[in-house]
Design a protein around this nucleic acid. Sequence first.
DNA 1: ATTTATCCGGAACCGTAGTTCCGATTCAAT
DNA 2: ATTGAATCGGAACTACGGTTCCGGATAAAT
Lengths: 213, 213
Amino acid sequence: MTEDDRGAHGASSAVQTAPPAVSALIEPRPMRADAARNHEKILQAAEEIFALDGVMVPIDIVAERAGVGIGTLYRHFPTKEALYEAIVMTRLTSLLATADECVKNPNAQEGLCSFLREFAHQSSEKKDLFDALGQAGIDIKARFSDTFEVLMARVDSLRQRAVDEGAVRADVGTKDILNLVMGSCHAAGPSGIDDTSLQRLVDIILAGIETRS
Amino acid sequence: MTEDDRGAHGASSAVQTAPPAVSALIEPRPMRADAARNHEKILQAAEEIFALDGVMVPIDIVAERAGVGIGTLYRHFPTKEALYEAIVMTRLTSLLATADECVKNPNAQEGLCSFLREFAHQSSEKKDLFDALGQAGIDIKARFSDTFEVLMARVDSLRQRAVDEGAVRADVGTKDILNLVMGSCHAAGPSGIDDTSLQRLVDIILAGIETRS
DNA sequence: ATTTATCCGGAACCGTAGTTCCGATTCAAT
DNA sequence: ATTGAATCGGAACTACGGTTCCGGATAAAT
């Protein structure tokens, strides 16, 4: 039961012209047009709502906002956790892209700096998504260990470059930095924190990890 | 209904010898011995459990740990929120005491420093109590505004002294500092963070708010 | 146009956690 | 020892949110 759309995420918009009999064994079916549309609508609605009201919102609300029934939502994401996973994945990927961008910056310090700013900015926009999930008993680091590792490595290279350049103290770990920045994002209570204040906090952190003269 | 033990918290252990008829209008009744005992047991159990498993634990568990029935618990704290309030109050008071202690330190920088360390230490011990409450939709700053203000003022005097002494930058606010330190405490995920790492984070923050040479 | 596999919608179900209620129990005053 | 009010205990009630189920609608293949 309910095994029909398992693993259909990567379908994209590739046209299927191969003989059905054989390819059916590999790729079950291309997913109906409306289904694909709904899948996207749900994902988007969830992202918006979670960012706005936190992950505690009842799932009905997400369905309502997406303009679909609850049943439909469950057809696409058999569990609320599955929804979380999809969104966190999006988020991690996006961060990874940001990190990649920042690595290109020839100035190591600037690179690290702008990554952290962007990281903080995203985190505060998406109302403490990561943290709220932790609260709800989902261990992100465990569930997405591979993607997480990659991101971590990327950030670490940002940090290492800055250290090599002599701009950042060698005795602060990547985790320390990320913990500090993440922490800043939700410390200001449920009301969130305005971007200006947040950037001020990031500045302090940056000052804190700089090499002293 | 259920108005019999309203406001009986401050009863303490003062002996009542005044004529009952008159004092009854002022102080309803001294609270039965076992009741007082239970009140204390519940408070203590709640503090322990909340610190250990977070505020999401069902209230039955608290009652069980305190060795009383659910009904009893509700007799003393008519709502789960009421329990929260009692505990947060304890916590705030304790922090206030710490702050008072630190103000006595003749060295302003050391004073601020040791307060922040202690603050961080307590926060990590008591498993993100404040934050978890925020998550649960309780706005601490609003509900305890008066006590909170006092604490805030105290910390601000710690900061101001350090600024006057030329040890801390003048452009960082008290809120910034507290946000950073609070943030550090729970950023490390549900598993918490060991005290050594936490102190390292506090060190970075302290470095970040120092005046540059 | 017909047919059928897929998908949609939302009523109903179930488990969980907060809260209420009231008979049984216990304190403490006489 | 007796008595009555205060307190206790926990079964039962309620609200809420996640999940299941299935009759009806729809895309797309013939």
